[in-house]
Design a protein around this nucleic acid. Structure first.
Lengths: 336, 336
DNA sequence: CTGTTAGCGCTTTCAT
DNA sequence: ATGAAAGCGCTAACAG
């Protein structure tokens, strides 16, 4: 039946449920004889422990809750891969909630994890940090990727989008770009806003461009395509810093199709280093986050936090994106 | 504290836990007055129901267990996306177990879902169908993607890899390829074996090639690179059917880098239609599965099976991959 | 070493 | 309409 309970096992083995439980869980204080009889009974009944019941009793679920926003495929799979791998090697399961909606829905998703997880991994760039902090269960160990949150059991890993953006622009300038445009991300996305801010500052200080060109975007490929049309019409832009890779790719493809040469006519740098970036022609230069590594690191911190309930130290961790130079922006024989 | 229980709420509202429960769950037999008092108490205490406890009591977790093999990123994210989307709109959560190991580990992962999920979604190509069938919990509604399994509560969605392979080869032949090679997948992967079988049969019947060339592979990009070297050395091969897209891409890139023209010198068709296929140059022709759709369909069937415990009908469902012609194999002005 | 007894937090008869 | 009590399946004191 597959539905045998520990009581059935105990009965069949002729012992109490307590002994059965001990035997099954490998407690030392069980006579080899009983242990064997319980094991036999369990096997005979095809017994599988009911983990839900066990968690209720032990206050431990060996499960990590993961709440992610509606991510683009590449980014999503990478971060999940990192999380999953790290969790898996620690014998932890993943309860996943991918968000397609607003802040309220996110809050609901977080609540729905109550009593089913030992800790929470949240990534929610579009929700403002304060709303997020309020939605987080007070007592539950949580690691937020993206926004910076504080609180007793809550910590965060933040990406230094501002610095990354500055470095991207600086690289383009070093490649000889004199007029650099930016394709921005969603207006309600914290990461995107920081990247845009970094761009503006860098364009100002490096190129003396007080009012640099910024195209609106939404992280989707199509936004890059549209920016490309504007760039083609403009004829003066010779560099593009895109707030993420997909828009950069859309832009590059369109530029190339129109007969422009990337990087000679227009050099392009993206952000994220999604796997696709390496496969387009030319390969896309980008600010690499080590997405999978980020997910894995988040799990590590979460596990630490779960295992040391009193350790209140551990401030936010800062991740600085690394410039990865590829064909889309390499004009001179830059080694890397 | 975020740790208030229903008892706390009941006490604060001055009612019994039973009434609190009824009020919280919107049962009709509760006086508006009590309902309000309970609601107030809950809000004041920041009460969040403990879903683990609720499932134990109701025998319902509103959670779907998902067990996947170690998939390549693109494929993985697509299938999860499909599953997640379908589950999400039904208010179901996903308990994820990504497998990195062998059959025994897969069986363990499946067992670990006991008592935490209402149904199981399993994809496990490398494990043989029989072992898989044995590992599945008897009573739990399950949908297997890939292998064909039977049993009372178990059903499956299978991909017609054989037909897909035949169609790919047929297309290459129609494009004028006379000597078509195949890059095979892992020897322990059921899907891969079927694709290879389809290739052999088609090569035999369409080209009269009794001993067609088959390169060993493992679904990784590098295997495609190696096959490409052999193809370059061979000088007679003018068509390639790769058992998946990534190997096809690795092959194509290497061929192109060596100065060969794809599709003129060598035409290539892959399998899966991962998102990257559209972004390489030329874009990769492939046998499209509608990966996300597959995941979504699997959820649908699983939900049906969960909600109709007695409906034993529903045999395996067959999915036929569709040929998607792109630049890597279009030699003549084929419309599509 | 083993059995008895309480729970974990919630839902649900069964009375009242 | 409400409360008392039983129970979901398991673990963990506490005695013996």
């Amino acid at each position: 039946m597959g539905t045998a309970t520990i009581r059935d096992v105990a009965r069949k083995a002729g012992v109490s449920v307590a002994s059965a439980s001990r035997a099954l869980n490998g407690h030392r204080s069980v006579t080899p004889a009983t242990r064997a009889r319980v094991a036999d009974a369990a096997r005979a009944l095809d017994y599988v422990p009911h983990l839900g019941a066990r968690s209720l009793s032990t206050q431990r679920s060996n499960t990590l809750g993961v709440v992610l926003p509606d991510l683009f495929g590449e980014f999503f799979s990478e971060i999940i891969r990192g999380i999953d791998y790290a969790a898996h090697r620690r014998g932890l399961q993943i309860l996943l909630s991918n968000m397609h909606g607003d802040a309220e829905e996110t809050a609901a998703a977080i609540r729905a994890m109550r009593g089913r997880v030992d800790g929470l991994l949240v990534m929610s760039p579009q929700i403002d940090a304060e709303a997020l902090a309020n939605a987080l269960p007070r007592g539950l160990p949580t690691v937020v990727m993206g926004s910076r949150v504080g609180g007793p059991r809550h910590t965060s890993i933040v990406i230094d989008n501002y610095e990354g953006a500055r470095e991207a622009v600086s690289h383009l300038a070093a490649q000889g770009c004199r007029r650099i445009a930016h394709i921005a991300g969603p207006a309600d996305n914290a990461d995107a806003l920081e990247r845009t801010r970094g761009f503006r500052d860098a364009a100002g200080s490096l190129l003396g461009d007080a009012a640099p060109i910024v195209f609106a975007g939404d992280f989707g490929e199509q936004a890059g395509v549209e920016a490309a049309h504007a760039i083609i019409a403009d004829r003066t832009i010779d560099g593009v810093f895109s707030a993420n890779d997909m828009m950069g790719i859309g832009c590059m493809v369109t530029l190339t199709a129109a007969g422009l040469d990337v990087p000679r006519d227009v050099a392009i740098v993206g952000f994220d280093d999604v796997p696709i970036a390496r496969y387009v022609t030319p390969a896309l230069s980008t600010m690499g986050l080590g997405i999978a590594a980020l997910g894995g690191r988040a799990v590590e911190r979460l596990v630490e936090s779960i295992e040391q309930p009193d350790d209140t130290s551990a401030g936010p961790e800062r991740l600085v994106p690394q410039l990865i130079v590829r064909g889309s922006s390499r004009r001179r024989g830059t080694a890397e």
